[in-house]
Amino acid sequence: MEQQKLPNSTLILVLGISSIILCCCWGIGGLASAIALILAAKATKLYKENPDMYSDYKNVKTGKILAIIGIVFFVIYIATVIYIRVVIGADEFREMMEEFIEQNQ
């Protein structure tokens, strides 16, 4: 019997990579990570039911790992934004950034 590609294996890999690249884009990276993890869970379940029938499981595992890394980066980003807003304050942070830009021009 000829092996088939796992459904969405390439998409899972692309979403995993995208989740890392877009981790600081106001939720897009987190959303990409979540979608990749959901699709990876479905693909893993399908693969484990009949491993001889499917190929490209490596793409699914790699995409899942990248999605987890993307979620970690996203959580760190959100925690940093909350910290800046609560501790420093948005207005003061903006003033600090403007001063920094003026000093480095």
Results as ranks from 00 to 15, higher is better:
I21K: 08
E99L: 06
A67W: 03
L46N: 04
M1N: 13
I88N: 05
V60P: 02
I101T: 13
I82F: 14
L66V: 01
I76K: 09
G16H: 02
E2R: 10
R85V: 06
V75Q: 08
S19Y: 05
F73M: 14
A67T: 01
T10N: 14
F100R: 14
K45I: 04
S9V: 01
K64Q: 09
Y54G: 07
L46R: 03
I17G: 01
M53Y: 13
M96Q: 09
G16Y: 06
T44E: 00
V75S: 08
K58T: 02
I28F: 01
Q3N: 06
E2T: 07
Y54Q: 06
Y47H: 14
S18I: 02
W26N: 10
I76V: 14
L15S: 03
V14N: 08
I21S: 11
C25A: 14
V81S: 12
K64H: 07
L37T: 04
E49G: 01
Q3W: 03
E95D: 11
K58R: 06
E95I: 07
E92T: 01
V75W: 09
G29E: 08
E92I: 04
V81F: 11
P51N: 07
Y77L: 09
Y54V: 05
L13E: 01
Q103G: 15
G27M: 07
T80C: 14
Y57K: 09
D91K: 03
G89M: 13
G30L: 04
R94Q: 00
F73G: 11
A32L: 03
L22C: 10
I65K: 00
K61I: 13
A67S: 00
D91Y: 01
V86I: 15
K61P: 12
P7T: 09
Y83P: 02
V86D: 15
T44F: 00
E92S: 06
V87F: 12
G16R: 02
T62W: 04
F100P: 00
Y83Q: 05
Q105W: 13
E92V: 04
L11A: 09
N8R: 07
S19I: 08
W26S: 08
A41T: 10
M96S: 08
V60Q: 02
S55L: 12
A67P: 02
Q105G: 15
G29T: 05
V86S: 15
E102Y: 12
